[in-house]
């Protein structure tokens, strides 16, 4: 099944064509890596697939939902990790993850179960659970962000520079998380500058340049 289908997708930021006719198909269970220079359109492509910015021209579907008219349905099924953590600094790790589980519409009991499961999967240490997020390191915050998204059990993960600012251990835990998400049946699209890292993670690397898929797709 095709999780993402884009046909001549165009997105304008003001008058600037951030995406200038992208054609892309991503299948269930794939890890697809996007590489390209700053401003090439990687983040815009991720945001488009998350239903966060409108498609100006062309057509596309994500998880079977139309990008033009069903953005809200797309958002509920997709998890996007951007450059920021999305966490509340004054809440503890436990409180943050529980909040995002309940925000996803889970009842209290299910939210607690999912929180504990996500914390275990992300390898968040017991001693960190009651600490406010403001006291965590960058790597611990990243793992907490991923856990707070994992409680929704999304079918599609969109990760924008997931390794940035992390030490070796943090990078490896993100890699492990990505592999486990795919094992569990999800699809992952990663935008990254770290070519070695994404080459080792993904057999499929797409180069974005000037808002288009600039050929050179490695399979």
């Amino acid at each position: 099944m095709e999780v993402i289908q884009l046909h001549e997708a165009m997105v304008f930021l003001g008058r600037f064509p951030a995406l200038a006719g992208v054609n892309l198909a991503v299948h269930t269970g794939e890890i697809i890596a996007l590489q390209g220079a700053n401003g090439a359109g990687k983040t815009t492509l991720l945001k488009l697939c998350a239903g966060l910015i409108p498609l100006d021209k062309g057509s596309g579907k994500v998880l079977g939902h139309d990008l033009d008219s069903e953005q809200k349905s797309i958002r509920r099924s997709v998890a996007m990790l951007g450059h920021t953590s999305g966490l509340y600094e004054d809440l503890t790790v436990d409180e943050n993850i529980l909040f995002w589980a309940q925000a996803a519409g889970l009842d209290r009991a299910a939210a607690y179960d999912r929180r504990d499961d996500a914390i275990q999967r992300m390898g968040i240490e017991e001693r960190l659970r009651r600490l406010p997020v403001s006291r965590l390191s960058a790597g611990q915050k990243r793992r907490t962000s991923l856990a707070s998204l994992a409680v929704r059990r999304p079918q599609l993960w969109l990760l924008d520079e997931p390794h940035s600012g992390l030490d070796q251990e943090g990078r490896e835990s993100v890699d492990l998380f990505i592999k486990e998400a795919v094992k569990a049946g999800a699809t992952v699209m990663i935008a990254s500058h770290e070519l070695d890292r994404i080459n080792s993670l993904s057999p499929r690397v797409v180069t974005i340049a000037g808002g288009v898929v600039a050929g050179g797709e490695k399979q």
Binding site: A50, L52, K72, R75, R76, V78, A79, M80, G82, T84, S85, G86, L87, Y88, E89, W100, A103, A104, G105, S148, R152
Partner: peptide, 17 residues
């Protein structure tokens, strides 16, 4: 600022609230 500092509002929108 609670929603802006770490872009938590994005998460609220993605969660479907």
């Amino acid at each position: 600022s609670l929603e802006v500092i770490n872009d938590s509002l994005l998460g609220l929108k993605m969660a479907g609230l």
